[in-house]
């Protein structure tokens, strides 16, 4: 083992030592497709399966938790829109504006977040850091409040919203992005370490 300095954090996630592992996984993945009954391949498949399970659970619980937080913040009037905002585009009866709408919104966001988590997994899974998560969350916020804004009846363009709402929703999206991003990055990092 090489000499360790004072500022040493072991093992640095993307040192050269670790990078080939990723390709090794891909190679194994390819060979797995070719010989399906290969035992190592089976093991890989099992690991892959549990990794995807983890990603799904991260997405689900991330959506659940942060939409609950957003409900609490909405209750305390930090933001004008609670989780019920997710139900606005759908043609639903009047209950979508009551607390039932918020509950339905929480469940819907939790389910939708599974897809979001897989999106992150395919885009940035190899980064084991909180920064891509922050960027991802901010990106989602821009997507929802700028690009998809016409879909939400009753939600005006961003410059018409009050500062409290803008800041709170942005912070929530960032935290949500970090939750999903950092968790997936960590799982991927561990996967790489295990097969190393």
């Amino acid at each position: 083992m090489k000499k360790l300095g004072k500022f040493y954090h072991y093992p640095f996630p993307y040192s050269k030592k670790n990078t080939p592992v990723k390709y090794k996984i891909r190679k194994k993945f390819k060979s797995m497709k070719e010989s399906f009954h290969n035992k190592a391949g089976d093991l890989m498949m099992e690991k892959d399966w549990s990794y995807h399970q983890k990603v799904a659970s991260i997405g689900f619980f991330g959506g659940l938790f942060w939409s609950c937080v957003s409900y609490a913040l909405h209750y305390l009037n930090f933001t004008k829109y609670g989780p019920a905002m997710a139900m606005l585009p759908w043609a639903l009866p009047e209950w979508k504006n009551t607390y039932l709408g918020h509950l339905a919104g929480i469940v819907f966001i939790a389910l939708l977040s599974i897809a979001v988590a897989f999106l992150y997994r395919f885009l940035f899974q190899k980064f084991y850091s909180i920064w891509p998560g922050i960027g991802f969350g901010a990106g989602l916020w821009i997507l929802v409040f700028y690009l998809l804004q016409p879909l939400f009846p009753g939600v005006g363009p961003v410059n018409s919203l009050d500062t409290n709402t803008v800041v709170t929703t942005l912070c929530l999206f960032v935290l949500y992005g970090v939750f999903i991003g950092y968790s997936i990055g960590y799982e991927h990092h561990r996967l790489g370490q295990e097969s190393a």
Partner: peptide
């Protein structure tokens, strides 16, 4: 975010909440 960034002895400080492990 500051708490989430801490990694002492390379272990994330807010684990198992973040990175999430149900």
């Amino acid at each position: 975010l500051m708490l989430a960034r801490i990694r002492s002895l390379n272990k994330p400080y807010l684990w198992p909440f973040l990175p999430f492990d149900v």
